[in-house]
Amino acid sequence: MNETQMNAIPTPLEGAIVYNTTSKSLNIRTNALREPLSTGKNKTVVLNKNYGNGNNTIVSNNNNYQNFPLNAADILTNDPSTFEVVGNGKIKVKTNGIYLMSAEISVSNMPPGNTKYVLAAEKNGTLIGYLSRGNTNGSGVDYWGATGVLMYVLQTDDIITFRYVINNGVSTLDAKFLNIGITRLN
């Protein structure tokens, strides 16, 4: 049955298993909740943009966080029983667990000089950690990129927002590659 039909069962029994055609997963009723059964593989969502040549502007304002400009249109893979993409750089988790989060960003026109960068994750609007943070010191305009990971315990309905800061002294950069992902480890 679909998600609506499954949730409309008036008196579901503990241990009852239903194949959910919406999420394409088996669900079991435990502790008054419906949980997807493990298929032996980690649950993952990945959003990605690979830009070609040209002006692929991302905003960079000194010390002002920007959401990663990735949304549901940029999904490469998603387990809808575990994740929902709810906005730019925003992913809602649908089940408790330990999650591994990653983010990557690259640009083709990083200006010369000392430049601070931050890749960060927020949970429900509060900073929970930095995936990567540092400084780059180029001698000329060049390609630049950063990547990082963060592991965190998340609860059902937590919304994770992936954000970045690049203090480059100019208002825009030419993006080449953007990626965010979350994997539920248990």
Rank of each mutant, 00 (worst) to 15 (best):
V170M: 00
Y99P: 05
T156H: 04
K92M: 03
P36R: 02
N61C: 04
Q155T: 14
S38P: 15
T22D: 06
T22L: 11
F68L: 04
L33I: 14
I17K: 08
F68I: 04
T147I: 05
Y65Q: 07
L100C: 07
L185G: 04
S132C: 08
F83T: 09
V165C: 00
L37A: 07
I98H: 03
D157P: 04
V85Y: 00
G148E: 00
G54D: 04
A175K: 14
S102V: 09
I160D: 06
K123T: 10
P10C: 01
T4F: 01
D74V: 14
M110L: 15
A8L: 15
T44W: 00
S106R: 02
D157C: 04
G125W: 04
P69S: 07
K43C: 11
N53A: 15
M6C: 10
T147M: 00
I180C: 02
A146H: 02
S102K: 07
T39D: 05
E84S: 14
A175V: 13
T82Y: 05
Q155V: 08
T115S: 09
I180D: 08
N78I: 15
S171F: 00
D74L: 05
I9E: 11
N96S: 09
K176E: 14
G113T: 12
S132G: 12
G181C: 01
S171W: 01
E104V: 13
I166E: 01
V93K: 13
S23N: 15
V45W: 01
T147F: 00
L13N: 10
T44A: 03
F162H: 12
F83Q: 07
T95Q: 14
V170D: 01
T57S: 09
N53F: 13
